[in-house]
Computed example of a mutant assay.
Amino acid sequence: MSETLQKLDDNMEEATGFIDCDVHPYLSSLNELVPYLDESVQRRLQIGRFEKSLLKNQSNGSFEIPKSRYSNPGYVLRVDAVTPNGGVPGSDPDYLIKDLFERYNTTCGILNIGHGTMSAYHNFDLAAAYTSACNEWLYDTWVKKDKRFRMSMEVTPMDPKLSIQEIERIGQRPEIVAVNLRDTQIPMGKQHFWPIYELAEAYGLAILVHPDGIDVGAYSPSVPVGPASTYIEWHASLSLIAQRQIMSLVYEGVFEKFPHLKFVFIEYGVAWLPSVMWRMDKNWKALREEVPWLKMQPSEYIRRNVRLGTQPIEEPFRPGDLLALIRMVNAEDMLLFTSDYPHWDGDIKNRVFLQFPQEVKNKIFYENAKATFRL
Score class of each variant (00 low, 15 high):
residue 106 T to L: 10
residue 49 R to E: 13
residue 323 L to V: 02
residue 172 Q to S: 15
residue 237 S to R: 12
residue 35 P to S: 07
residue 118 M to S: 08
residue 93 P to Q: 00
residue 184 T to Q: 03
residue 342 P to C: 08
residue 47 I to E: 01
residue 371 A to R: 15
residue 97 I to Y: 12
residue 268 Y to E: 06
residue 158 M to D: 09
residue 49 R to N: 12
residue 118 M to H: 04
residue 7 K to E: 15
residue 169 R to N: 14
residue 331 A to I: 01
residue 352 V to N: 08
residue 355 Q to M: 11
residue 352 V to H: 03
residue 73 P to G: 04
residue 73 P to T: 01
residue 20 D to F: 00
residue 51 E to P: 01
residue 249 L to M: 06
residue 154 E to K: 12
residue 106 T to F: 02
residue 158 M to P: 10
residue 109 G to Q: 00
residue 14 E to P: 02
residue 184 T to V: 06
residue 121 Y to V: 06
residue 242 A to C: 03
residue 300 E to D: 15
residue 47 I to H: 04
residue 246 I to W: 01
residue 256 E to G: 07
residue 350 N to T: 14
residue 195 P to N: 08
residue 71 S to C: 11
residue 330 N to F: 08
residue 88 V to P: 08
residue 278 W to V: 10
residue 144 K to Y: 07
residue 139 Y to T: 11
residue 343 H to Y: 00
residue 248 S to Q: 03
residue 87 G to Q: 02
residue 79 V to G: 09
residue 102 E to Y: 04
residue 1 M to R: 13
residue 139 Y to R: 07
residue 199 L to S: 02
residue 39 E to Q: 10
residue 37 L to G: 02
residue 326 I to T: 05
residue 173 R to D: 11
residue 330 N to R: 15
residue 78 R to K: 13
residue 323 L to F: 01
residue 174 P to R: 07
residue 94 D to L: 15
residue 112 N to P: 05
residue 46 Q to E: 15
residue 92 D to T: 03
residue 142 W to N: 01
residue 17 G to H: 05
residue 211 P to T: 07
residue 116 G to Q: 04
residue 362 N to Q: 15
residue 21 C to S: 14
residue 77 L to T: 06
residue 81 A to Q: 15
residue 223 V to K: 09
residue 251 Y to K: 09
residue 292 P to K: 06
residue 318 R to Q: 13
residue 216 V to N: 13
residue 29 S to L: 05
residue 317 F to A: 13
residue 69 R to P: 10
residue 201 E to V: 05
residue 211 P to A: 05
residue 79 V to Y: 09
residue 223 V to N: 10
residue 301 Y to F: 02
residue 291 V to Q: 14
residue 119 S to W: 01
residue 187 P to L: 05
residue 150 R to M: 11
residue 209 V to T: 06
residue 127 A to N: 09
residue 272 W to I: 04
residue 240 L to E: 14
residue 115 H to Q: 14
residue 201 E to Y: 05
residue 127 A to G: 11
residue 293 W to R: 10
residue 138 L to I: 11
residue 29 S to N: 11
residue 129 A to N: 14
residue 280 M to Q: 10
residue 51 E to C: 01
residue 234 W to Q: 12
residue 63 F to V: 00
residue 181 L to I: 14
residue 254 V to S: 02
residue 171 G to V: 04
residue 291 V to I: 11
residue 156 T to A: 03
residue 269 G to F: 02
residue 143 V to M: 05
residue 319 P to S: 01
residue 135 N to E: 07
residue 341 Y to R: 11
residue 208 L to G: 13
residue 348 I to N: 09
residue 54 L to G: 12
residue 265 F to Q: 04
residue 280 M to D: 04
residue 257 K to S: 13
residue 166 E to Y: 03
residue 300 E to W: 09
